[in-house]
């Protein structure tokens, strides 16, 4: 954050405003332009500050009313970059204003890729996994713990992302891309995610068969015991992998859900579980 020294007081104030406004990115989300209105709304403090001329102001508003869609915690980073480019554009006559939207659209795809798997696939899963195991034992703190685990890191990323984007500008992010650092971070995050999903598959997918054979009124063979000796949780693991296989075969999720409901009722009808 050493570069923060050349950000003026006014700019800091505007950046904070942008950080708060960015929460509403998808408030009026439309199919055609996704978070366009939210992006434009977040950029307004800068647009008002940098452009006094009405024509330039309108151009800037139109520029930021363009299609925008990314993982929301990373949106402030892109906004920061866009704001720093608007500043450059307002000062430098030779600056190509089209490059602002070009940078926006070149960043939102890749950042959404990392963001979706990190924030939705890993952080949310960790938070939900911990909260569900608390909630299943009736602990009423579960929702609070869930919201804190997810939101504290997320909001920090949003806050610092705003300033980081503004100070580093667009050249730095290209460097990070070329260095392959993004790839390493994505892989590391996915590893945590996979471990958690594995653990949750064991903890949350539940199946116990009631089949047993009895001789002279004494039960001599319990199928579940035998299954457990082969591999604990073999049925839940098998069903999860089967669902995963079917999803990859492009079977719709709704079919899968109804399939599992149907299977469960059959298991009950035939007294298997």
């Amino acid at each position: 954050m050493s570069k923060m020294t050349n950000v003026s007081k006014d700019e800091k104030k505007m950046l904070r405003k942008m950080f708060w406004r960015a929460f509403t990115l998808y408030t009026a989300v439309t199919p055609a332009k996704q978070g366009a209105s939210g992006f434009c709304y977040s950029m307004m403090p800068f647009i008002d500050h940098f452009y006094k001329d009405a024509k330039q102001k309108k151009d800037a508003l139109v520029r930021h009313m363009a299609y925008f869609n990314t993982t929301i915690p990373l949106s402030t980073f892109i906004m920061g970059i866009a704001a720093s480019m608007e500043k450059e554009n307002s000062k430098n006559k030779d600056f190509d204003a089209n490059s602002i939207n070009a940078i926006k659209s070149s960043l939102m795809g890749p950042l959404a890729g990392i963001g979706d798997s990190f924030f939705w696939g890993v952080l949310r899963v960790i938070a939900a996994g911990i909260a569900v195991s608390m909630g299943q034992s009736g602990n009423i703190l579960a929702p609070i713990v869930f919201l804190l685990i997810f939101n504290i890191p997320t909001i920090l990323v949003r806050y610092y992302g705003t300033f980081l984007g503004y100070t580093l500008g667009s050249t730095y992010i290209e460097k990070i891309y070329q260095s392959g650092l993004i790839h390493i971070l994505t892989k590391a995050a996915s590893i945590v995610g996979l471990i958690m999903v594995g653990g949750m598959t064991s903890q949350m997918v539940k199946f116990t068969t009631t089949i047993s054979m009895s001789m002279k009124g004494e039960s001599v063979l319990k199928l579940q015991g035998m299954l457990d000796q082969i591999f604990v949780g073999i049925v839940p693991l098998g069903i999860t992998l089967l669902c995963f296989y079917l999803l990859n075969k492009k079977v719709s999720i709704n079919y899968l859900i109804f399939g599992v409901i149907g299977l469960s009722i059959l298991l009950s009808v035939f007294h298997i579980a």
Binding site: V197, M204, V205, K206, C243, I253, I257
Partner: peptide, 20 residues
């Protein structure tokens, strides 16, 4: 029983996101 098995679908969807 279904309540115990349905999380399998959710886990499968997460796997689709993370599997490599």
């Amino acid at each position: 029983i279904c309540g115990g098995l349905l999380p399998a679908v959710g886990m499968a969807m997460l796997l689709k996101l993370l599997w490599d």
